[in-house]
């Protein structure tokens, strides 16, 4: 099996998996029916993407492991998502800030992944990019609404951006698998996306009257499986059924 390709796919899909799981926590508890529907819909899209990626990863592994085995039967240290997506739904401003900071990256990433020489990945990216452009429109609109809404919403959005900013740099860190896949023309060189990302995000924040944080220290580790304490609880729910009732069909 091509280990680098396998790990590369997991690195992409785990972000959607964990973010989808976080958004799924909110279903039925949103601030309005419309936002509830939108967040559920984004979660639904992300899990749909996860299924495409993991089905492909299962094929590459070639040992009969299923999408669910990959999604639900790994240990904490084997999940490769960035720290940003596992951050909690502290309030709706955090949910939106997390979504926007990820969507802006995700959209640019998928735009490049469409050019992959791996035809399956490029086909998946081609489908996902349409969904994610909607996610990004939703989250950037809400960043502006909350940032430039009331004094209270402005403060909450500023706090969320201040807290989550520290997780943005990791989006552009390359793993060994990333580097190997770039070399083969399969992967996206994410280091090339960084400048445009910060430029675009800053423009949206400016329009939202939110100050761009000026910090020197960033958090990292997710891509190497060194997560925040939140991940264990996310996995406890995600894996519960597969762990409590092993080897069954659902």
């Amino acid at each position: 099996m091509n280990n680098n390709l396998y790990n590369y796919i997991l690195g992409i899909a785990d972000n959607s998996l964990i973010l989808g799981q976080r958004l799924g926590e909110l279903t039925g508890h949103g601030p309005s029916l419309e936002t509830d529907i939108a967040c559920t819909n984004i979660s639904l899209d992300l899990f749909g993407q996860v299924r495409s990626y993991f089905q492909y990863a299962g094929k590459i592994a070639g040992d009969g492991r299923s999408e669910d085995d990959i999604a639900m039967l790994r240990k904490e240290r084997d999940y490769k998502n960035v720290l940003l997506v596992e951050q909690p739904n502290t309030n709706f401003a955090y949910t939106i800030a997390r979504q926007f900071l990820f969507d802006a990256y995700h959209l640019a990433f998928l735009g490049e992944l469409q050019k992959s020489t791996d035809l399956t990945l490029s086909a998946i990216a081609n489908k996902c990019v349409k969904e994610v452009s909607y996610h990004e429109r939703f989250s950037s609109d809400w960043v502006k609404r909350l940032g430039d809404g009331t004094e209270e919403s402005h403060q909450k959005m500023q706090n969320a951006i201040d807290d989550l900013w520290t997780y943005t740099d990791e989006l552009f860190h390359q793993t060994e698998a990333d580097k190997a896949m770039v070399e083969e023309g399969i992967g996206v060189d994410i280091t090339q996306l960084k400048d445009n990302y910060y430029k675009y995000v800053s423009e949206v924040l400016e329009e939202a009257t939110i100050e761009v944080p000026d910090i020197k220290y960033f958090q990292k580790g997710g891509k190497q499986g060194i997560h925040t304490e939140h991940l264990g609880y996310i996995l406890a729910e995600l894996q519960y059924m597969q762990r409590a009732y092993p080897n069954m069909e659902w």
Binding site: H29, P31, S32, L146
Partner: peptide, 16 residues
């Protein structure tokens, strides 16, 4: 609870 926690969000959307 969802309604009360969402009040500031709805207010912000109106103000915007």
């Amino acid at each position: 609870g969802a309604w009360q926690r969402g009040e500031w969000v709805r207010d912000a959307a109106m103000a915007y």
